[in-house]
Design a protein around this nucleic acid. Structure first.
Length: 880
RNA sequence: GGACGCUUAGCUCAGCUGGUAGAGCAUCCGCUUGACGUGCGGAUGGUCAGCGGUUCGAUUCCGUUAGCGUCCACCA
């Protein structure tokens, strides 16, 4: 920083330069170094063609704080960045773009289309990475990965083959969630449920060879086209005689059996359930138990297929209307009721999900879930905040097999090859040229790709080179911590855990530090459709990255959502500016270019050093416990209140005075405290702290690689700290009283301090003069004889008299002092009752009792002084 | 149906293992105070949702009620 500094901090002018300096210094790169402890984080890989949103800003800030602290603490700390190929999201994006040219992916064909997506990735893939840099993220860019790069793809293939060989991956025909819009299967996790007002239609099914009629209830009448049975509860007396008989499916005319199954709840609806095995998971189960026929009536676009007869070609919505109309016309409709229920929609596109039978690949979860439950139960892996443990366990304990195949082109293609001749499936690490069973060359690779989350599940070890046994893997795995939002606990965290355990034999990370989501100022989720999204890039532009980062970590509890307010960013920018100006002040007054702590320390020096010395372990501990918000708040308070509002003001007289030694020691302490605080603050506000540090006398190339502060025994000054605070209390009392009495600041007064802490106040004399607006300070141990015309103030260690004759009315003074006395007495009464309570004295920790005793002493002292002051008051003024 | 979270100053929210209630913003009163008006000094404002319990002591722990919110499950 040159001598002439702007009065306001300009992030735009500083941030890119500082970031480049870090890059040039290669400070982000972490090496395998067995002489150091390792610390590692892998980034939750953002979508490669996505752009930065506040959620990214949130967890990247957290990660950066953690990794910067550890780096400064001397760890070999790596933060591995990278991006996710984001199968569906990316493919859709490219397809949409293609549609502008009036083309679909099928016009191009698989190979050309995939090449086009790669091209798109090359074009847009860098954006989010660049945006992460503007945040100040200290990722090890040399280790940047992509879920579809060669290494990650190899890991995916290896995992697939291993799991297949162990029988943990299988292909089967099951009811899966089908998204008609994305035209692919999706996993259970990818379905979101929405409450919806709907209807329950009652439909008459005529019993064969009888006049009896069964009434079934359904919310989805169009699926009746695929009914292959009607089920009743085995114990249900009403229908027992019909079990084993058949009935006739209306409109279709198919004769279907009536079966008994305990799945049916006799108390719901009519107690008769239509069974549609191909379009309902429960019905699928029932069908399996009873060996029922499967009739699939919908295609991949959720249109009725040829099995739907006359309804063929209709969409599911059209089919519903048509079916209802025809049922009505045929007299099959027995009634309709309102019915609220949940419907599943695709988390990507919001389209109503269609449960449909389909042949897909699955990961068998049960054997994988067991260990994943154990490691959390026995504490080998923990969630912060702890409550997410339960969320996780509940999910893992009930998890169903994971549908991993996607009918997409963009992704890791399933390495399964079907033999046209013998039907054998060859699953192999390298593409086979022939069927492994019959050696026929007529093999075809499975058309599908894997769920995007299949590859991100491997991220904590694939990024370090697995399946190769690399030094990185040995050194950095398990990673220390991951920092996802709670919305991806199931998508990502859970799957990393069982994958890590299965393939690495160890947890992928020791801690999952879960955060909430960033909402708008009305508490709404940010979304494209609401148009309420806030672009972090604009925020950085307006307030600076440091301000955004600080906003992200302060004022919200771990794991809970936060609302985003511009005002908060503004406040944090102001904090940066405050720090900037404090630094400017220090530099303006600095006459040295190196520093060390002076031998002779003044009271205020010891006070601030002592406070700082306590701040160091406090902040360190908070960060270690993942209480970054608390740590940030402490730094904010220390810098603004203690350093700026007090210490700097306290040393101004020395800096401007003629005593060179006292001036110089103030400079030294200023630099010491500022430097120390900059180190602690650096992980939170890396840019501004680095910029200031570079301008201050320093050793080493950069703050970001400076050593994290340690508390220093020699800097504990409890006595001087207390003395200083006694003086500060008097300053506060005088200021408050003056403000109350509207004494203009320019009007200085002579004050009289009556105290037994004479030495402390002698040393604080200059501070009192400067900060309490005094023309003169008299310190004595006994009160003056005549206090007429004096305003009396009391702290627990001093009585103060201000000669403000023209402003004083004795009656008012008396009233005020008495009010203070009453307050103090009330408090004293409470306190002495507490101390008189034998239970308290016996059972409370000694330190607490001691503290309360000390407080009582102070109150007594205060009360004595109040009484003295009251007694000394002259008789009431003559009414004039 | 199950689980979880929240309810603290006008607003938005912090408050670690129980031991004198905090911040930012807003409001009010002052201030060109030689770092900073993105500032300085001062002030107002809270029976910490209600009710029980444990405890010497509860905003903090337990139970319960109410309101709000989230996740999971999904009886057609």
């Amino acid at each position: 920083m040159p001598a002439q500094l702007p009065k306001t901090y300009d992030p735009k002018g500083v941030e890119p330069r500082i970031y480049q300096m870090w890059i040039d210094g290669n400070y982000f790169h972490a090496k395998v170094d067995w002489t150091k402890r390792s610390f590692s984080i892998v980034i939750p890989p953002p979508n490669v063609t996505g752009q930065l949103h506040l959620g990214h800003a949130f967890d990247n800030t957290i990660q950066d704080i953690l990794v910067r602290v550890k780096r400064m603490q001397g760890y070999s700390a790596v933060w591995v960045p990278g991006t996710d190929h984001a199968g569906i999201a990316t493919q859709i994006k490219v397809e949409e773009n293609l549609r502008k040219e009036g083309k679909t992916r099928h016009d191009l064909g698989r190979e050309a289309f995939v090449e086009l997506v790669w091209e798109w990735k090359r074009l847009h893939g860098g954006r989010i990475i660049e945006q992460l840099k503007t945040l100040g993220s200290s990722c090890d860019w040399e280790r940047e990965r992509f879920t579809m790069d060669e290494g990650c793809s190899r890991a995916v293939r290896e995992v697939f083959v291993r799991l297949y060989e162990k029988g943990l991956i299988y292909k089967g025909s099951r009811i899966i969630n089908w998204c008609p819009h994305c035209a692919t299967a999706i996993s259970d996790t990818e379905v979101e449920y929405r409450a919806q007002h709907g209807h329950l239609w009652n439909i008459r099914y005529k019993v064969s060879g009888s006049d009896e009629v069964l009434v079934v209830a359904t919310t989805r009448p169009e699926t009746m086209l695929g009914d292959t049975a009607v089920a009743v509860h085995p114990e249900d007396e009403r229908y027992r005689h019909l079990v084993g008989k058949t009935c006739v499916l209306p409109l279709v005319g198919r004769v279907i059996p009536i079966v008994a199954d305990s799945y049916v709840d006799p108390s719901f609806g009519t107690g008769c359930v239509k069974i549609t095995p191909c379009h309902d998971p429960n019905d699928f189960e029932v069908a399996a138990r009873h060996g029922l026929e499967h009739v699939l009536v919908m295609d991949g676009a959720a249109r009725i297929n040829e099995n739907g007869g006359q309804y063929k070609g209709l969409t599911r919505e059209e089919a519903r209307e048509a079916v209802l109309r025809d049922l009505e016309a045929g007299g099959f409709l027995a009634g309709v009721e309102d019915h609220d229920h949940n419907v599943g929609v695709c988390y990507r596109c919001d389209t109503l999900v269609e449960p449909i039978i389909s042949s897909q690949w699955f990961v068998k979860m049960e054997p994988l879930a067991g260990p994943a439950i154990d490691v959390v139960r026995d504490g080998r892996m923990k969630f912060v905040p702890e409550r997410f443990t339960k969320t996780y366990l509940n999910w893992m304990e009930h998890v169903r097999d994971w549908c991993i195949s996607r009918q997409l082109w963009w992704g890791h293609r399933i390495p399964a090859f079907y033999c046209d001749d013998c039907g054998h499936v060859t699953v192999a690490r390298e593409d086979p040229t022939a069927c492994e069973a019959c050696h026929s060359a007529h093999i075809r690779q499975d058309e599908d790709v894997l769920d995007t989350w299949f590859s991100s599940a491997l991220w904590p070890f694939s990024v370090f080179g697995w399946p190769n046994e690399t030094p990185e893997l040995k050194y950095f795995y398990p990673t220390t911590v991951v920092t996802p939002g709670y919305e991806i606990i199931f998508f990502w965290v859970a799957r990393m855990i069982f994958s890590g355990l299965e393939h690495m034999g160890d947890v992928p990370f020791h801690t999952a530090y879960i955060h909430g989501i960033v909402r708008d100022d009305q508490g709404r989720k940010m979304s494209k459709s609401l148009g309420n999204g806030i672009d972090p890039v604009e925020i950085i532009d307006a307030y600076g990255a440091d301000a955004l980062r600080f906003t992200m970590v302060t004022g919200n509890a771990p794991g809970s959502d936060m609302r985003f307010y511009h005002e908060r960013c503004e406040a944090m920018r102001n904090f940066g500016n405050k720090l900037w100006n404090a630094a400017r002040f220090v530099l303006m007054n600095l006459h040295v270019d190196t520093w060390e702590l002076p031998e002779e320390l003044a009271m205020e020096d010891k006070w601030i050093l002592s406070k700082f010395n306590r701040l160091v372990p406090d902040v360190t501990e908070n960060i270690e416990n993942y209480e970054v918000g608390v740590a940030a708040q402490k730094l904010y308070d220390f810098l603004w209140d203690d350093v700026c509002d007090w210490y700097i003001e306290l040393v101004k007289p020395r800096l401007q005075g003629g005593d060179a030694a006292r001036r110089s020691s103030a400079e030294q302490v200023l630099v010491a405290v500022l430097t120390g605080a900059l180190k602690l603050l650096h992980p939170f506000m890396p840019f501004i702290t680095e910029e200031i540090w570079q301008a201050l006398p320093h050793e080493g190339p950069a703050l970001m690689v400076a050593e994290w502060p340690h508390p220093d025994e020699r800097l504990n000054f409890p006595v001087e700290e207390a003395d200083m605070e006694r003086v500060m209390a008097v300053i506060g009392a005088v200021r408050a009283r003056r403000a109350e009495m509207r004494v203009p600041p320019a009007k200085k007064a002579r004050i009289l301090v009556v105290t037994t802490y004479r030495a402390a106040f002698e040393e604080g004399r200059a501070s009192l003069m400067k900060l309490a607006g005094c023309s003169e300070v008299e310190i004595r141990e006994t009160p003056p004889e005549d206090v007429k015309g004096l305003v009396a103030l009391v702290t627990d260690s001093a009585q103060i008299y201000l000669p403000l004759a023209e402003l004083v009315r004795v009656a008012d003074e008396r009233a005020r002092l008495e009010k203070e006395r009453r307050t103090a007495e009330t408090e004293r009464a409470k306190l002495s009752a507490k101390l008189a309570n034998q239970g308290f004295v016996d059972k409370a920790p000694a330190a607490v009792v001691e503290a309360e005793r000390a407080r009582l002493d102070k109150l007594d002292s205060l009360l004595r002084k109040l009484s003295d002051s009251l007694a000394a008051l002259p008789p009431e003024d003559e009414p004039s």
